[in-house]
Amino acid sequence: MKELKILAVIAALVGITYYGIEPYAHSVMHPEVSAADFTFKDAKNVDTSLAGNVENGKVLVEANCIACHAIEKAGHPALMPNADAAASYGVVPPDLSHAGRIYDKNYLANFIFDPVSAMHLSHKYPVGGTKAFPMPSYNWMTPQEIMDVVSYLQSVAPKVTEDKEGHKATFEAACGRCHSMAYAKFDATTPKDSIKAYMGATPPDLSQYIKSRGEHYLHSFINDPQVLLKNTSMPRVGLNEKAQEEVIAYMEEIGDSKKAERESLGLWVMLYTFVFAILAYLWKRKIWSEVH
């Protein structure tokens, strides 16, 4: 009985200290931020309730977009090697094959209308400033035309599998022009020096970011980097919730590949230890019964 009391005192002291230096201290150092918004409700230049016309969208995309963007899945390869594209635009324009699948519809329409405001980069590209964003605004298109483009992009986007391969495709389409993933042997399409000059900061290799930032942080950060890193040059990429989850899943598959093994082995080791503890207890009872 007395020993249980001692144990309770120690558990209380250790528990209080633990609470203070872990959950509490972290809540002080990293205050909660507003929840992720997957409707992108601040972007409202385009009426997205209009139904798009795929045929017309195809015409518009072929006239306006493929000069810069590849759309491999629709038979439009890149017009120049990555190094040249990076030299021309600062960053390699992403292949749009997956665009209709990974970007939120409202975000995508508003991005085409005005990339800078949709990406939350007005601090970097102020109106009337000297620096111009490499992709033009298509604010001269009518909302109907923009929705036609969106519909076309949605129609060409391939389905991907719900596994590591599918997650990889999403990651590379959404983040791959800037970020490398060394532990998956993936290099960003834009060469290192160009991307640094273009962004003003080197996009970090994301191999271990699932560990250093954790899922909770990534969930807010990818949705809108400005909320957690004010004035960062990383754009809001505008992924819908499903695509974002795929990206995070991929970061975990690469950065914490032994998670499943760890969790299943953990249970066995604990079970084994528990049996040991019980046997040790019975043995102790037997031995001490002779001396008490």
């Binding site: 230890t273 528990f274 040991f276 503890a277 046997l279 043995w283 102790k284």
Partner: peptide, 11 residues
């Protein structure tokens, strides 16, 4: 014997 018992639960 007592230490092993404590050790078991500690582990």
């Amino acid at each position: 014997s007592k230490d092993f018992f404590v050790l078991g639960f500690f582990l």
